[in-house]
């Protein structure tokens, strides 16, 4: 375990990258996914169709291909994210980070959209009718009555989507972000004698992080469950 402890600083830094990718992509994919879901169930036919096509295209494409698109096809058409350069202490959020984060957001949003849509479909029609009957406009019906209940129904699949996202951040380790996976490969290469410990340590940290996520989801589920 010495190798892991000796490199605790590097490992911590790597997991900060991992977690920052997760938080950035998690929050933005929830927002973008919710907009997509609203478009999918909304009254505007063009938006409904566009959102459906988006989900069909992105959800059926492997994550690696989506990110590689932003990493390698993007620069060819002038999309370099060169404007992104955020420095916080030892953390550098650069153009590569941005490309990877955008890839994760684009990909995860399609799953968030579908999770929310299934949640919306699970809300009985009568709820919307009752909301309309007391005079709420479309926005009020969605925000006050449909979405809160849809979130409740969508929570288990949303939690799965977010857990998958946390693990999917490792794809960025081969595409320019020095996150946990890249760090692990560096350590296993430099310390061949301690490979098993290094693997176990990284796996364990991921297990703990996912457990924390699952616990949060579980608590929310409990809190939102009604009688």
């Amino acid at each position: 375990m010495n190798v892991v402890l000796d490199n605790a600083g590097d490992i911590a830094l790597a997991f900060i990258y991992t977690l920052s990718l997760f938080v950035v992509a998690g929050v933005l994919s929830l927002i973008f996914g919710a907009l997509l879901a609203a478009a999918r169930v909304g009254p505007v036919a063009v938006l409904r169709k566009a959102a459906a096509v988006y989900v069909m295209l992105i959800r059926n494409t492997p994550l690696l291909i989506v990110i590689i698109f932003f990493r390698f096809a993007g620069p060819k058409i002038g999309l370099t994210f060169g404007f992104v350069d955020i420095r916080v202490a030892d953390i550098r959020l650069n153009n590569l980070y941005a490309a990877c984060a955008v890839g994760l957001i684009v990909y995860t949003s399609s799953f968030v959209c579908e999770a929310l849509r299934s949640g919306i479909n699970a809300v009985p029609l009568g709820q919307a009718e009752a909301a309309r009957a007391i005079g709420l406009p479309f926005g009020g019906v969605m925000s006050q009555v449909i979405m809160p209940q849809a979130m409740r129904h969508a929570l288990p699949p949303l939690a799965s989507v977010q857990i998958a996202l946390l693990k999917n951040t490792t794809v960025c380790g081969a595409l320019g972000v020095f996150e946990a996976f890249a760090r692990m490969r560096g350590l296993t290469n430099d310390f061949a004698s301690a490979r098993t410990e290094i693997f176990l340590a990284f796996a364990l940290i991921f297990v703990v992080l996912v457990e924390v996520l699952s616990f949060v989801a579980y608590r929310l589920e409990r809190r939102w469950r009604i009688a």
Binding site: P124, Q127, E129, P148, W224
Partner: peptide, 13 residues
Amino acid sequence: VGMVFQSFNLFAH
């Protein structure tokens, strides 16, 4: 216009 439904439709949440 007040409306009362067969299946109540109270907001469950």
